[in-house]
Nucleic acid binder design. Structure first.
Length: 260
DNA sequence: AAAGAGCGCAACCGCATACTC
DNA sequence: GGAGTATGCGGTTGCGCTCTT
């Protein structure tokens, strides 16, 4: 039997709308079913991913806040690359988003360290970090990797941060962060970074129920409206995008599938 | 102004685990 | 309890936008 080729690549607005419609209709569980019934010609997996990472109404938009970034680093030092677990502690953020943030963070950290490592450079907390035999991009298990042969596995962050925190080193998580922020400040005098240097107070509850910490001034609101956008018009388009005719035809489509 | 490099992000892949029959 | 299927997770890739030279 010749199986029709599944659509791949970026989602169109129409596909998004359709998916949202059918998820609202059938719930966000039976992805293969939704994929079929919607006629999206995508795999259930792809539908789920799109929903979870982009269309879910509780998702926050935009960059991670400084509090969230601190939290990610703290949790990563505790749990390593358990992205979904970390994401659960950051309402409205996805594992994918956090993964991407961490990758970017490590990339910057590495670049900074490289810069510092050059003969002309002098002091800095990151240099002390590497001089402590905790190379950022080549922890013990990946030490054979060439510099520049970057792998996402080579986060190094876990060992470094754990080691430093555990050993009560002078170089704290904040120092690393400050280093990066300051270096960015040097490049572009961006005032947005000012608050990043202010350490938030956290108070959080772990999955096991024990208290870890969480941001005291957490701004997240679970009743956040769907797709908060700068552009109100754009937002409305997403909320009420299709004509009622369009919805009706999807409704028919779903019904037809169910009734055969 | 154009080309190349770097970066951010969305999406895919493969494997592991959970669920259903 | 085992097989088949669905879902979840972590790692990786590719594309488009922005920045730099």
């Amino acid at each position: 039997m010749v199986q029709e080729e599944m659509r791949r690549g970026p989602w169109t607005e129409q596909e998004d709308l359709k998916l949202v419609y059918f998820v609202n209709m059938f719930g966000d569980r039976r992805w293969d079913f939704i994929a079929k019934v919607s006629g999206l010609n995508r795999t259930g997996k792809s539908c789920r991913l799109r929903w979870v990472n982009y269309l879910h109404p509780d998702l926050k938009r935009g960059k991670l806040t400084s509090q969230e970034e601190h939290l990610v680093m703290e949790l990563h030092s505790k749990w390593g690359n358990r992205w979904s677990r970390i994401a659960r502690k950051l309402p409205g953020r996805t594992d994918n988003e956090i993964k991407n943030f961490w990758r970017t963070f490590m990339r910057k950290k590495k670049a900074l360290e490289k810069k510092r490592a050059s003969p002309s450079s002098s002091s800095g907390s990151l240099s002390s970090l590497s001089s402590n035999n905790h190379a950022v991009d080549a922890d013990d298990s990946h030490a054979s990797k060439e510099v520049g042969e970057e792998s996402f596995y080579d986060t190094g962050g876990y060992d470094d941060i754990m080691g430093l925190i555990g050993a009560g080193e002078e170089c704290s998580l904040d120092d690393i962060w400050k280093d990066i922020v300051l270096s960015e400040d040097n490049n572009n005098n961006n005032n947005n970074n000012i608050n990043i240097l202010q350490q938030p107070v956290y108070e959080l509850h772990s999955e096991e129920g024990s208290k870890i910490y969480s941001p005291s001034s957490w701004e997240y609101n679970c009743s956040h409206p769907l797709w908060v956008m700068d552009d109100e018009e754009e937002s409305n388009k997403m909320l009420f995008p299709a004509s009622s005719d369009q919805y009706y035809s999807w409704y028919e489509q779903g019904n037809a599938f169910l009734t055969g």
